[in-house]
């Protein structure tokens, strides 16, 4: 879908926005994905309202995923490298927050204590993002190569924490078995499974330099580097798995929170 004229119109009513010269075209699937994450962010936030603080961690985490995904649609995303790097850090912070929430839940099943305030979570999130901004500001302006490294680091964090979270959720389920909410919690295994598929296949493509970002660099800098096997079936499978994983993880988050709503009503 072509959004060029929309953004050009935006630059006329908001004068400080830089002019748009390149066409702004989005895939429908990307828009659907962002919309799903938007719903997931709203529903998880709504669920956390008036609930224990661990749900605040989880909901801010899912909200930041939406934020990170939505930022990529911004036509200026590729023009401001420092901002893009900060958003990659925010992506890593989001899974850290979600993992923190589930680890607090597991701790709760062992101690049956709910401690700490929501304000701490908000402030810690803000602190982590500010730290990311300071880190990016103190270092040289990231190149496209550096941004790709940031993205790889983010995917690695996501992959390993999602695997850890699957085990944590299974442990929680074992501890709270028989409680009305147990099956709702178990649904998060599905969410993290899809995230593993999504982030894992993306990381796999990056490691073998089959990712679109690397191909752009090869074209831009006129490298004569050939990524061996780029036309192979594995690349097609990994690319499909990455897109499907992203879509299914968003959908499963929406479904899981809707199910949790039903269970706690």
């Amino acid at each position: 879908m072509d959004f060029t004229s929309f953004f050009q119109y935006l630059t006329t009513i908001i004068p400080f926005l830089p002019k748009i010269y390149n066409p702004v075209i989005y895939n429908v699937s990307d828009l659907v994905l962002i919309f799903i994450w938007f719903i997931a962010a709203i529903i998880s936030f709504y669920f956390s309202y008036g609930n224990a603080r661990l749900w605040t961690s989880v909901s801010i985490g899912f909200f930041l995923i939406f934020w990170g995904q939505a930022y990529l649609l911004n036509p200026y995303a590729s023009s401001y490298f420092r901002v893009t790097a900060v958003h990659t850090i925010i992506g890593a912070v989001s899974i850290l927050l979600i993992s923190h929430g589930f680890q607090e839940y597991f701790l709760f099943t062992k101690t049956l204590d709910i401690t700490g305030s929501k304000r701490t979570i908000y402030l810690a999130t803000l602190g982590a993002i500010i730290l990311g901004i300071v880190f990016v500001s103190l270092n040289p302006k990231p190149s496209l190569f550096v941004l790709r490294n940031y993205r790889m680091a983010e995917n690695t964090v996501w992959l390993f924490l999602s695997i850890v979270n699957i085990f944590v959720v299974l442990k929680i389920h074992h501890e709270i078995k028989g409680s009305p909410i147990a099956n709702g919690i178990l649904s998060f295994v599905l969410v993290f499974f899809f995230i593993v598929i999504w982030k894992g296949s993306e990381l796999y493509l990056q490691m073998y330099q089959w990712d679109p970002a690397w191909q752009t660099l090869v074209e831009e800098f006129d490298f004569s580097i050939q990524s061996e096997g780029i036309d192979g079936a594995m690349v097609k499978i990994a690319t499909t798995m990455s897109s499907a994983g992203a879509m299914l993880s968003g959908l499963s988050v929406v479904g899981t929170f809707a199910y949790l709503f039903k269970l706690v009503r």
Partner: peptide, 12 residues
Amino acid sequence: EKSSILLASANK
């Protein structure tokens, strides 16, 4: 009640 909020619905 405070701890139960993570295990069951408000009605329950």
